[in-house]
């Protein structure tokens, strides 16, 4: 593990961003090779959403990986989170521009009336303050405890994003349910740790 950590120390933030840009670059490449299928808009839209969700899950895995496997990736969590926000934003933008094609009346109606769109939109809104406070300065300004509390929003955002995915399918499909189950398990693990810690911190009563 020490060798892994020694290797990871050489990884710079820009490298993480470069790695994270690959799915987007591949999509752009596929536009030019005509490899996006018969409905390229849906392919792009779904892929961007999928990558955003995967990055959110990756971000949620950082702490369990450290506690359970001793692998410390905490240095990269910010980049992963920012990338998740970028992909979610692109997903949303493609929906507005290429899918709904700026039909604002329909977009507005969808954003308040359609449960799965409302939920996806809420998940996106939750990511906004997280992206805005993804700097050391923000941690200093808010104080580490308040900042951490704010960033707990990652959990509801990820759950909502997965529900958004489950709900848009016409029938029950395996993949979205797998994401939802995984995120729920990660959340349950955190809550369980918290409860144990809380218990340990409470002085035993006679």
């Amino acid at each position: 593990m020490d060798r892994v950590h020694a290797l990871l120390r050489r990884v710079r933030p820009w490298m993480v961003y470069a790695l994270g840009a690959i799915p987007a670059a591949l999509l752009i490449l596929r536009i030019f090779t005509g490899d996006l299928g018969i409905d390229p808009v849906k392919t792009i839209e779904h892929r961007l959403g999928e990558v955003a969700l995967q990055l959110m899950v990756a971000g949620l895995c950082i702490t369990p990986l450290r506690r359970l496997a001793g692998l410390n990736l905490i240095r990269f969590r910010r980049q992963i989170g920012v990338l998740a926000f970028v992909y979610a934003t692109l997903h949303f933008a493609v929906w507005i521009a290429l899918d709904l094609q700026f039909r604002w009346a329909e977009i507005g109606a969808d954003l308040v009336k359609r449960p799965y769109i409302v939920i996806g939109f809420l998940a996106f809104l939750m990511l906004v303050p997280l992206a805005l406070t993804s700097s050391n300065a923000s941690i200093r300004r808010l104080g580490s405890a308040a900042w951490q509390k704010l960033h707990w929003l990652t959990y509801p955002a990820a759950v909502l994003a997965a529900v958004h995915f489950v709900w848009l399918m016409k029938a029950w499909a395996f993949e979205p349910l797998a994401y939802l189950a995984g995120i729920t398990a990660l959340l349950a693990l955190r809550l369980w740790w918290r409860a144990r810690k809380g218990l340990a911190a409470t002085p035993a009563r006679a």
């Binding site: 536009i31 409905d39 899918d99 094609q101 449960p115 799965y116």
Partner: peptide
């Protein structure tokens, strides 16, 4: 009459590629 989960007000014509018209 909308589908409970999405609007039926418009549709995208498949075949127009990236800019398939709604």
């Amino acid at each position: 009459v909308d589908h409970p989960r999405w609007s039926q007000a418009s549709e995208r014509r498949i075949g127009g590629g990236l800019f398939a018209k709604r």
